[in-house]
C-alpha cells in the first residue's frame, strides 16, 4: 500500500494561536510555539512532529483564520 506523506505550512502572521488545529490533529503533528510569537504577539502553530503528518486536512478545516496550507504526496 502506498504511504501518504503530508506536510502543512502555517501562515505565521495570520495565526492567532487558538490551538484548535493542535487539538484536531489526529497524529499530534502540530503544537504552538512555546516561546516565539508573531507580530501580533501570538504563539503560532508549527509542525512539532512533521514526520507524522498524513495530510488529512483536519487542522486546516477547523482553522478559523484559514492560515494552514496542506500538502500531500504518495510515496
Amino acid at each position: 500500500m502506498a504511504k501518504i506523506k503530508g506536510a502543512v505550512v502555517v501562515n505565521v502572521e495570520r495565526c492567532k494561536g487558538c490551538d484548535l488545529c493542535v487539538v484536531a490533529c489526529p497524529t499530534h503533528v502540530l503544537a504552538l510555539q512555546p516561546k516565539e510569537v508573531n507580530n501580533r504577539g501570538y504563539h503560532f502553530a508549527y509542525m512539532q512532529n512533521p514526520e507524522s503528518c498524513i495530510a488529512c486536512q483536519s487542522c486546516a478545516l477547523v482553522c478559523p483564520d484559514a492560515c494552514i496550507e496542506v500538502y500531500r504526496v504518495q510515496e
Binding site: K5, A7, A60, V70, Y71
Partner: peptide, 14 residues
C-alpha cells in the same frame, strides 16, 4: 519537507 511542500502537492489552501 521540501519535496512535499510544492505547489503541485497542495491539497488545501485559503
Amino acid at each position: 519537507l521540501n519535496d512535499i511542500i510544492k505547489p503541485e502537492n497542495r491539497v488545501y489552501q485559503k
